[in-house]
Amino acid sequence: MQRILLIEDEAAIADTIVYAMKRDGFECIWHPLGQSGMAHLAQHGADLVILDVGLPDGNGFEFCKQIRQHSNIPVLFLTARSDEIDRIIGLEIGADDYVVKPFSPRELVARVKAILKRTHPVVAPSKPNGFELHEAQARVLLHGHALDLTRYEYLLLKTLMLRPAVVFSRAQLMDQVWTQAENSLERTVDAHIKTLRAKIRLIDADCDPIETHRGMGYSFQWPKRV
């Protein structure tokens, strides 16, 4: 059952959404305040966040920015404001969709399904090789244990895993992973590769799937079956 985290301060709207989501087979957890919703997300995670823009304890845009600092989890905004500039801002800071109140619960559920379909977890061949990539949750598992990765470590590893055996130059990795690559240094890639390898070895001391190609860059090689 996929889990939806709803952060919405209006109880009547929240009740309608929770009912509609549960009717379509989702688990829907409601929090009326942004801070409590963010705490729940940090502790328990979710497959998608429905986030009201106007909350009593903060702006939904700011909460979305906080989420994007460490996670690529899908975010759908709810708002009473229909101005184009608000929609643009919401999408630019990382929202996956934007629904204006009043709305049809059926349409909202359809939009949630569409987002989840686009961001359905890509599970790379795993059990024999140890690694699992779950894009919707923005996490990588090794032997069933989640790697404790920063945003850039996750994005770097994901980029390599999605195209195994392909050699990426440092410049290519910076362009795909870092939002302001022109302001970063290529040795940043080397530093993140080093920490990635260390975190992988914390779970499996003999596992080293990231291969260095001298003068060229890096690639991901699936560990051989044991």
Rank of each mutant, 00 (worst) to 15 (best):
D9I: 07
E10V: 06
E10H: 14
D15W: 07
T16F: 02
I17C: 10
Y19P: 00
A20Y: 10
R23P: 06
G25P: 11
C28D: 03
S36W: 09
S36D: 15
L41N: 00
Q43V: 08
I50V: 10
I50F: 03
G54P: 08
G58K: 10
F63I: 13
C64R: 03
C64P: 14
I67T: 02
H70E: 14
I73T: 12
V75S: 01
L76P: 07
F77W: 10
L78Y: 02
R81V: 09
D86Q: 09
D96L: 10
D96R: 10
F103G: 08
P105A: 15
E107A: 05
A114P: 09
K117R: 14
A124M: 13
P125G: 08
S126F: 07
P128L: 13
F131Y: 07
E132Q: 12
V140W: 00
H145W: 02
E153W: 03
Y154P: 00
L157V: 03
K158W: 08
K158H: 12
T159N: 14
R163D: 11
P164F: 14
Q172H: 04
M174T: 00
M174C: 08
A181S: 14
E182L: 10
E182K: 14
S184V: 05
R187C: 08
A198M: 02
K199N: 02
A205S: 13
D206E: 15
T212A: 15
M216E: 15
W222R: 13
R225H: 09
V226W: 00
